[in-house]
Simulated scan of single mutants.
Amino acid sequence: MSQVPVKHTNRRQPRLAHECAVGELFGRAPIYDAIFSCISPHTLVRIGRCCRAAYAASKDFSHRAYNIHRHLSRYLSEPLNFRSLQARTGTLIAGSNALQFLDRTFYPKSDMDLYVHPGHVREVLDYLVEREGYRFKPDSTQPQDYREIVSDEWDGTQIRDETPEDDELLLYYQIRGVESVLTIEKRGPDGLLKIQIIACETSPFDAIINFHSTCVMNFIAFDAAYSLYPVATFEKRDTLSVWRARPLHDLTVVIKYGERGFAWISTLPAGTSPQNSAFYPFTDRTVGDRYTWKLPLDTRGVALRPQINPSSSIFQCDPVIYNGWALERVQHGMGTVYKTIKSSVFRYNYTTTNYKLNFKIWLFAIEQGFLSRILLDNNLLDKKSWPWCVDTIVAYAL
Rank of each mutant, 00 (worst) to 15 (best):
L170F: 09
Y172D: 07
Y173T: 15
Q174S: 11
I175Q: 08
R176W: 10
G177E: 11
E179T: 06
L182I: 03
L182H: 03
L182Y: 01
I184K: 06
E185K: 12
G188A: 04
D190M: 06
L192G: 00
L192F: 00
I197A: 04
C200S: 05
E201V: 12
T202R: 12
P204M: 10
P204Y: 11
F205D: 07
A207D: 06
N210C: 11
H212P: 00
H212Q: 06
S213G: 09
S213P: 08
F219S: 07
F219Q: 08
A221M: 03
A221L: 02
A224F: 14
S227H: 09
P230W: 02
A232F: 03
A232M: 01
A232G: 01
T233W: 08
T233E: 02
K236F: 03
K236A: 13
L240Y: 07
R244N: 10
A245H: 12
R246N: 06
D250K: 09
D250F: 04
L251H: 12
L251E: 14
L251D: 13
T252L: 09
V253Q: 13
I255M: 06
K256Q: 14
Y257E: 11
E259C: 11
A263L: 13
T267S: 15
A270Y: 02
T272V: 10
P274F: 05
P274Q: 09
Q275E: 15
Q275R: 10
Q275N: 10
N276A: 04
S277W: 01
A278S: 15
F279C: 10
T286A: 13
D289N: 07
D289L: 10
D289C: 08
D289G: 09
L295W: 02
